[in-house]
Amino acid sequence: MNIGEKVKNLRNERGMTLKQLSEETGLSTGFLSQFERGITTIAVEHLATIADLFKVKINYFFEDESVNEPIVRGYDQPVIHKLNNIIYKQLSRSPKDKMIAPKLIEIMPHENRELPTTYPHQGEEFIYILEGILTLVIEETTYQLYPGDSAHYFSTINHNWDNQTNNVVKFIVVHHPNDY
């Protein structure tokens, strides 16, 4: 996969249009379209801007992805998303072509002790607690899950999870279909 294809994949994964990428980077949509198709090259400083925008290291674009290698080492789990006090790490080498995309979630302690707002989405969800105490809300019921506990539910019902403690909570989450 060339660099332009990797940029296109990142853009599509985040639901971003060429026009939005153009507005964020200051590069024309025509240039970006040609770059994504491998017709033209890009200056390193512009690639660095795109890497920052997508929150990946610039070397991501130069790494050879070994689709045949199914192993992700503990020291090499890419952070795919950070939102407020939550860190999402990818546990699959190539989740884009798979039915599921397991993630390691780390929720840092925070001040807000209100129950999280619940919401539904497509598919089903499985979680397994590794460390800490996770608060899981499904419909109107609140559960406290401890290390070794798991939950499996249809994600089409209102649900959400949070850390309501003063310690880090770590758990594995698997969605089907793949929401990578």
Rank of each mutant, 00 (worst) to 15 (best):
L91A: 02
I58H: 04
D64S: 07
L18P: 09
P70H: 02
P102Y: 04
E124C: 14
K6C: 04
L145M: 11
V56R: 00
N158V: 08
V137F: 05
K98I: 01
V67H: 13
V72K: 12
L104N: 09
R73L: 15
S22E: 05
G38A: 05
P177V: 08
Q77H: 04
F62T: 09
E140S: 14
L136V: 08
N12K: 12
E45G: 04
E125W: 01
V137P: 00
T117K: 15
T135R: 01
I87P: 05
S94G: 10
S22M: 02
R73M: 13
D97V: 14
N85R: 15
K96S: 11
K82M: 10
K6M: 02
N2M: 10
A43E: 11
E106N: 14
E140G: 11
V67Q: 07
L53H: 01
R11N: 09
V56E: 02
Q164C: 06
T29E: 13
E131R: 13
I138A: 03
F154Y: 11
S155I: 06
K82N: 14
K82G: 02
I42D: 03
L115G: 02
N59L: 11
E36Y: 10
Q90E: 07
E45K: 10
S28V: 04
M99C: 05
L47I: 13
P120D: 01
H176F: 14
V173T: 11
F154E: 09
N178M: 01
L32R: 07
T156R: 10
I107Q: 00
G38E: 03
L104I: 08
I107H: 07
T29W: 00
E139A: 11
H176T: 14
F61M: 10
V7W: 00
N167A: 14
I86V: 15
D97H: 13
Q164W: 06
R37W: 04
S28I: 05
T49R: 12
P78E: 05
E139H: 08
K103Y: 06
I157V: 15
Y153G: 03
H176N: 11
K170F: 07
N84M: 13
L10F: 05
N68D: 15
G26H: 00
T165L: 00
S94W: 14
T25L: 01
P120H: 03
K98D: 05
L145K: 12
G26W: 02
T29R: 12
A43L: 09
K103E: 08
N167W: 09
H81P: 05
I105M: 08
I50N: 00
S33F: 06
V44C: 01
P102V: 12
I50D: 00
L10T: 06
M108R: 14
I138G: 04
V169Y: 06
N112D: 15
Q20R: 10
A43C: 00
P147F: 03
I87Y: 08
L47G: 06
Y153P: 04
P102R: 13
N112I: 13
P116A: 03
I107S: 04
I42N: 03
